[in-house]
């Protein structure tokens, strides 16, 4: 009973985070803000959902598989965000202000 609640809360939190990530992806102004919105929430949201499902499942084999998927997501999701951000930086995309119009000042040494 208690575990059902925990799993339900985890699933809800995960869904909510995914929703905020999607919203941020649509609404934020520049590329880096968008990738921040979906990259960060995606890892946490997927972990929450997978943990919730892990608690729901009652036999060992699916639990083990979910654990493996969780491990894979924890490794691959931040890496793919990093790859996207780095590719964008190398392609010359620079951070812009909240309206997505003016380029922001960069730290010294960067251009």
């Amino acid at each position: 009973m208690m575990l059902d609640w925990v799993s339900g809360v985890l699933l809800l939190v995960g869904s909510f985070l995914l929703l905020t990530g999607a919203l941020g992806f649509l609404r934020f102004a520049d590329f880096y803000a968008r990738i921040h919105a979906c990259g960060v929430t995606e890892t946490l949201a997927t972990s929450c959902i997978l943990l919730g499902l892990l608690i729901q499942s009652d036999s060992a084999v699916p639990q083990f598989k979910l654990l493996l998927i969780l491990l894979f997501v924890l490794l691959s999701s931040p890496t793919s965000s990093h790859a996207l951000a780095k590719a964008a930086w190398n392609a010359g995309v620079r951070p812009r202000d909240n309206r997505g119009k003016q380029p922001l000042p960069l730290p010294p040494g960067e251009h």
Binding site: F72, L75, T79
Partner: peptide, 14 residues
């Protein structure tokens, strides 16, 4: 000049 260090490390484990 521009190695994909993070990608290389992660992919090496995968």
């Amino acid at each position: 000049k521009d190695p994909h260090t993070i990608l290389q490390v992660v992919s090496k484990t995968m």
